[in-house]
Every structure is written in structure tokens, then in C-alpha cells.
Design a protein around this nucleic acid. Structure first.
Length: 211
DNA sequence: ACATTAAGTGATT
DNA sequence: AATCACTTAATGT
């Protein structure tokens, strides 16, 4: 039912409660799990696969905030599901994934009842907060080429592959910039022999990963 | 063969 | 770094 790692994380009574209450949800790549404005009625923990969490500007531009990997949860859900607030973010399945949904109703109780649950919640929050700070740094201070490198590395980590099947257009959307700019930056990197470019495919070479 | 979509590029702001 | 305008290349029907 739940992944093996949970047994080390949570006490037996909590595991039993999880088994009783949580329900499994399977999603396909690119399914929207949570959209902006929706209220959160359950907290998803990723069992396998990964999610991308994005934010949309008034003009409809979507910018990538961070990825959520297996055994992690989305910190935003904690903050808004406690108060039944509308979501500020959008969560999309990056690949086919399996989620474990914990209903909001039990979360409060568990925090009081189970120290290990409180720890889990707190550490995901801390982890996410730090990651968000890094994202802010990137957007505020880093140049686009550095953001692009970071993006490609992250993509490669998600897919576990050095071949990324993504169009320049999609990269541009994720980084909230224009396709032309991305094409030019990627071309530079190709000339630098860091990557190889094909149609809707980017191959990362060894040189790319050097330092 | 033709239409559509992805990518490359020069010029301008 | 963004936008425009245009070209070339790859892919789908």
C-alpha cells in the first residue's frame, strides 16, 4: 500500500491509520492535479513519479517553481488546506505518477497525535521553503543562461536520462521567456559542445555536467 | 504534395 | 533579453 520508507518514518499506529484513510490516486503525465483557485481537500504524497509546481501570471504566463519527487509532498497544500484556502499554485504530473491522498480532516489530529507526522510536515515545509528561496534567487539575480542550465539539469534528474524530449517552446514557457531567446542560448551551448540539438529533443553531453 | 509545427537567424528596440 | 519578420527543416495527413 504505502512505500517501504514510510515504515522507518512513521510509527505503526500511524501507518495503520494511513492505510485505513488514505486513498491511492494514479495520474497520467500532464494531468493537472491541482489548479489555481481550487480548494485543497486532501494532501498528496508522491509514491512514485514526480510533479511540477507552477504559478501563473495575470497574462497567463506559467513559470516553474519546483518539482516534487517521490516520498515528498507539496508544502503549499499544508498551508492552504488547513484553512481551506484556494490554491495559489498549479500542480501537474510530470510523468505517470501514483499519489497517496491524505484527507485534510485527519491532518490536524495527526499533528497533535503523532510526533513523526509533525516532523514529516515540518521537514517538508522547511525543505520547500529553502528550495523556493533558491528559485527566487535565480529569478531575481541569475541570468537566463544560468537558469536554463539549472532547468536542464533538473529535467535530466526527473527523467533519469541525458536525453530530454522537450521543445524549445516548452522550455521557454517553463522559464517564462520567449522561444527565440531559448533557441539562441541552446545554440550557443551546442556550439560549445555541451549539448546536441534535435527536433523536440536535447541531448546533454558529458561536458555539460562538468562542474 | 501540401499543411503544420519546430527551430534558426538577422535586424531592431 | 524581447519582439518581429522571415527562412529552413522536420513531421503529419
Amino acid at each position: 500500500m504505502y512505500p517501504e520508507q514510510f515504515k522507518l518514518l512513521f510509527e505503526p499506529e500511524l501507518l495503520k491509520e494511513i492505510e485505513d484513510i488514505a486513498r491511492i490516486q494514479e495520474v497520467r503525465a500532464n494531468d493537472i492535479i491541482l489548479n489555481i483557485g481550487q480548494t485543497v481537500k486532501s494532501m498528496p504524497i508522491i509514491i512514485s513519479g514526480s510533479l511540477r509546481v507552477t504559478r501563473i501570471s495575470e497574462e497567463g504566463k506559467e513559470i516553474l517553481l519546483y518539482y516534487v519527487y517521490a516520498n515528498e509532498s507539496c508544502a503549499m497544500t499544508f498551508t492552504c488546506c488547513m484553512e481551506q484556502q484556494a490554491s495559489e499554485i498549479r500542480a501537474i504530473a510530470e510523468e505517470d505518477s501514483i499519489l497517496l491522498n491524505i484527507p485534510v480532516s485527519v491532518m490536524d489530529k495527526w499533528i497533535v497525535k503523532y510526533p513523526t507526522w509533525k516532523n514529516f510536515v515540518m521537514s517538508t515545509m522547511r525543505f520547500r521553503f529553502n528550495e523556493l528561496l533558491r528559485t527566487i534567487d535565480q529569478i531575481a539575480f541569475q541570468k537566463l543562461d544560468e537558469r536554463l542550465i539549472h532547468y536542464l539539469k533538473e529535467k535530466s534528474k526527473v527523467s533519469g536520462s541525458t536525453v530530454l524530449n522537450v521543445s524549445h517552446e516548452q522550455v521557454a514557457l517553463d522559464l517564462a521567456t520567449s522561444r527565440v531567446v531559448i533557441s539562441r542560448l541552446l545554440k550557443k551551448m551546442e556550439n560549445d559542445e555541451q549539448i546536441l540539438l534535435y527536433r523536440t529533443q536535447i541531448k546533454l553531453l558529458n561536458k555539460f555536467f562538468e562542474f
